[in-house]
Amino acid sequence: MLEIKNLHVSIEEKKIIKGLNLSINKGEVHALMGPNGSGKSTLSYVLSGKDKYEINDGTIEYNEKNLLELDVDDRANEGLFLAFQYPMEIPGVQTSFFLKTAINSKRKYLGQSEMDALEFAKLMKSKAEELNINTEMLKRDLNVNYSGGEKKKQEILQMSMLSPKMAILDETDSGLDIDALRIVSEGVNKLRSKEKSFLVITHYQRLLNYIKPDFVHIIADGRIVKSGDYSLALELEEKGYEEISKSA
């Protein structure tokens, strides 16, 4: 599904990612853990195609395509989804209108006809209910005056409606209380299937109690320094980043 080889990335001549390798197969859930400034968020932006990041070396293959050649919206329509750590506030654009535009863009890309209004409303309602989101909220401007938890739920709603093949969750747990964390995780778990892959980026082990990963990677200074199964996350919790990185 996703194959990152020897990736080197810099921003404004500062090197952030320094030779990162990562391979994610269909149906797998990978967790990427690391301290602040280790390059976690940079990786998520690079995967989604944000400019200002310079790819100095390496390749990223996604679904047998060269990901780096695709524009941001093409990547999204190919089924790559990034749940942002800080979702954008867009005043003047109703959330439901935004969702509808996004869904129809994907359908157009795939050569399908637009979803009719009724079908869309049904889909939105059922997905919103699953995530315990009040549909009134979807009439408001996108993310404007949403609480931190509401914004994150909204991201997961978008994810579930767009039904991506590869979802990247960038610190989705940050700023969530325990109830919201549970709801968001349940939303993610419902989407897990043999066809979908996940990359869960997090600072803390807490989220992984809810979303059990198949693999755990530890990133430090722009490289993956240690990989393992779920037990690595528990070990990390116990010993801390410094010791784990040293022993690596």
């Binding site: 941001v72 919206d73 003047g92 935004f98 996004a102 863009s105 890309y109 767009l162």
Partner: peptide, 20 residues
Amino acid sequence: YYFKSRGIDSEMAKKILKKA
């Protein structure tokens, strides 16, 4: 960029943002 990350092309994104 946020629009594009959701699959909406930049021309459409610009039009929506102008309307907003």
